[in-house]
Amino acid sequence: MLKYLGKRIARSFLTLIIILTAVFCLLRLMPIEGYFQNFDKMTPQQIQVGLKEMGLTDPLPVQVIRFFKDLLQGDLGVSRIYRSNVPVSDILKDKVPVSVKLGVWSMALSLLVGLPMGALMARYKYRWFDKIGTLFIVCIQAVPAAVYFLYIQLYGTKLMGVGLLFQINDPKYWVLPVLSMSLGNIAFYGMWLRRYMVDESNKDYVKLAKAKGMSEGGVMFKHIFRNAFVPLAQYIPTAFLNTVIGSIYIESLYSIPGMGGLLVTVIKKHDNTMVQGIVLLYACVGVLGLLLGDLLMVLLDPRISLGKKEGDR
């Protein structure tokens, strides 16, 4: 197990290095016009000086190695265009916690509401709770998120008595964004948990559990839920980390100073160091999510043992 984990982490690092190198090289292929605001009026000498300042005239391998050297020292570089001469890490330091906080709350809410909802829907299949739940899920899945986000903002802000301008330190202002972000995930967890539980409840071990005299609720909770949760568990870390990365739409709707949409902005602005920094963050999040997902599966399902090779029984 530990050996597997070590290997897996080493491989994750390799993945990160490949991603960063690839992105780094791709960025260097972009036209140089983007680096300067008044490119048309500049002389070739000025352009050369400008590029040299940014270290773009060196051969590509040298640039890559310099980038990784800096990275190892924890230096993500300095933003040039997005916010002139501010270290990338400082910019992210302000933005990431806001998005993380939003993500954590919304994830907690989706799990706390979505899972019990799915379980109860499976328990009372075809009864009124299931029907209402299905209606909710269908609505959330079918109506474009942008539509109900707007309605939530429109009526929610009135109901809560909050202004449109986001106040980061007032918990009241967090309610609506968190709620908006959770709805989709609640529907997702509810739908899939119900589905997996209904699947499981037709299996033989459930019949045996019933035949040994366990109550229906007991069977649901002690046997079916656990088995149904396994396939779902794999996605939870990734989903969680995706939420943490931030939602462009919700953050802009409530003018939350998070990092949603930041990547697009800095790519547009040709701010290479910022792009690198954010890509690094996203890649870490992605790789970590997959790793955690697999580990969670191992914890939940004794049949999966990661240490062994395929066919090694």
Binding site: K203, D204, A211, N227, P302
Partner: peptide
Amino acid sequence: AMIMQDPMTSLSPL
């Protein structure tokens, strides 16, 4: 009490 046909699926795997 009852014993089912297929022992491979009669027990909860977890």
